[in-house]
């Protein structure tokens, strides 16, 4: 028999899902997620999630971009190919600033993109949840919660009862 991935439960509507998420959070589960066909305001907080960490990647990208821009011009104009333009010094922090500034923006954008992929663990070509016919309906009109077996609190019977208790229906075991 294949390894078990976790349990999937269906919820009636948005408020149901929202309140169920709060209960799962309060029960102390860590490895679980909600699935809904539409964005729901406040759901991350109901799931006990903090703010996204993508800005950290943006900051690192921007910081690198700024210094790469400045150092690139510094190396080129001072050592690699010194060129006298209009009596200006070979290097000054003033004139490479547009380059540093543009690279800050470019690498900050790259950082954001990479951060989004890393924090979402993308690309992901396979996910056990897609084995469930029922799960596919979350992209049209269904609301669901999945709790993974790798959660330290997970116990197939107890978790099934818990999901029923908080209003889950059609509870399914999902295999890896």
């Amino acid at each position: 028999m294949a390894k078990q991935f976790g349990l999937l439960a269906r919820f009636k509507d948005t408020p149901d899902l929202f309140h169920a998420a709060e209960k799962v959070r309060d029960a102390g589960y860590r490895k679980w997620d909600t699935f809904a066909p539409l964005p729901i305001h406040g759901l991350p907080a109901a799931q006990g999630l903090g703010r996204s960490r993508v800005p950290v990647f943006t900051l690192i990208g921007g910081f690198c971009g700024f210094w790469i821009g400045l150092l690139m011009v510094w190396y080129m104009n001072l050592y690699d190919y010194p060129l006298l333009v209009g009596g200006m010094p070979f290097f000054s922090p003033i004139f490479p600033f547009p380059i540093a500034y543009e690279l800050t923006i470019l690498l900050a954008a790259f950082g954001t993109l990479i951060g989004m992929f890393v924090m979402n663990t993308l690309p992901q070509h396979y996910h056990p949840l897609f084995n469930s016919e029922q799960f596919l309906a979350t992209s049209s009109d269904q609301f669901m919660i999945a709790i993974e077996s790798s959660d330290p609190q997970f116990n197939t019977e107890a978790t099934r009862l818990f999901l029923e208790e908080i209003g889950g229906t059609d509870i399914q075991v999902i295999e890896e």
Partner: peptide, 12 residues
């Protein structure tokens, strides 16, 4: 503010 300085600096 910087662009103003930058243009004046470059035109000299």
């Amino acid at each position: 503010s910087f662009s103003q300085y930058f243009l004046i600096y470059n035109a000299n």
